[in-house]
């Protein structure tokens, strides 16, 4: 697995897409910090950008890389190495290089600005960590769609649909349900619905770290109380880990059964 991951990382770090992605973060990072001049307020902007982009780019890039390296993967499959290493390695490789772009692209602006402003680095580090995790989760899902269908258009479409589902439609349904059942106590439902979606969970974890959490009011207090406890932190971390293990298990399973 490490051999493949190392190869994929080396391959991708030279790819202009990785570099474009990194530069995008670099430019956006400096632009936002420059325009707001205030780290704590720009964090909310970064949060929105990272929560949209890392899953989206993970979905697109994961499936794109799968299909373009499909033939090379066949060459690898003929080599003496287990299939799971090839595909988990590919996942690792794509996830790490996307994570690298995020860490460097946003890290540099933050470090150079952070040296100027004595800001709390905790939320920013958490933002980067969650961004990397989301990148992994959606790259994994993209890889699964690739493994399920050889039809590039279908695979691409499915990967984007899953992203759309978790990034947008889920929240739409969430909101409709909240409206529909407004006469019932909804905190528990809101908490569970948030925990189940990795993008929502990441967003709420981060919001609770920021000033803006005050706007969440009573609802936020319920979340804060839950996520403030040891159980809450464990459940949140557990849910994200589950979202990482799920693709891993599916990739292994699909890789074992599939024909190439």
């Amino acid at each position: 697995m490490n051999r493949i991951a190392a190869y994929v990382i080396r391959d991708l770090l030279r790819s202009r897409w990785t570099i474009a992605y990194l530069l995008f973060y670099l430019i956006v990072g400096y632009a936002v910090l420059f325009l707001s001049g205030d780290i704590s307020r720009s964090l909310v902007t970064f949060l929105q950008i990272v929560l949209i982009l890392t899953p989206l780019i993970g979905s697109i890039f994961g499936v794109m890389y799968y299909y373009t390296s499909r033939d090379f993967m066949e060459l690898l499959l003929a080599q003496p190495m287990p299939r799971r290493s090839i595909f988990l390695g590919q996942w690792m490789g794509v996830g790490v290089s996307l994570g690298f772009s995020l860490l460097v692209g946003l890290g540099i602006p933050f470090l150079t600005y952070g040296a100027l402003y004595e800001a709390d680095k905790g939320p920013f580090i958490l933002l980067l960590a969650l961004g990397v995790a989301l990148g992994f989760i959606f790259t994994g899902i993209a890889l699964i769609t690739g493994l399920i269908t050889d039809n590039r258009i279908k695979g691409f479409g499915a990967s984007l649909m899953i992203w759309l589902l978790l990034a947008v439609i889920y929240d739409g349904i969430f909101l409709i349900l909240l409206m529909q059942f407004r006469d019932y106590p909804l905190e528990k439902f809101a908490l569970i619905a948030t925990l189940l979606n990795p993008i929502d969970l990441s967003r709420v974890i981060l919001l609770l770290q920021l000033d803006i959490s005050a706007l969440l009011g009573y609802t936020g207090a319920v979340f804060q109380q839950f996520l403030g406890t040891q159980t809450g932190v464990l459940v949140a971390a557990g849910m994200l880990t589950l979202w990482l293990l799920l693709p891993a298990a599916l990739i292994r399973r699909l890789a074992r059964k599939r024909d190439f």
């Binding site: 391959d11 033939d71 090379f72 060459l75 003929a78």
Partner: peptide
Amino acid sequence: YRQEMVYMPQIAIFP
């Protein structure tokens, strides 16, 4: 067992 064989595919598209 694949250590004991090599495969030259029909269309090899490399990275």
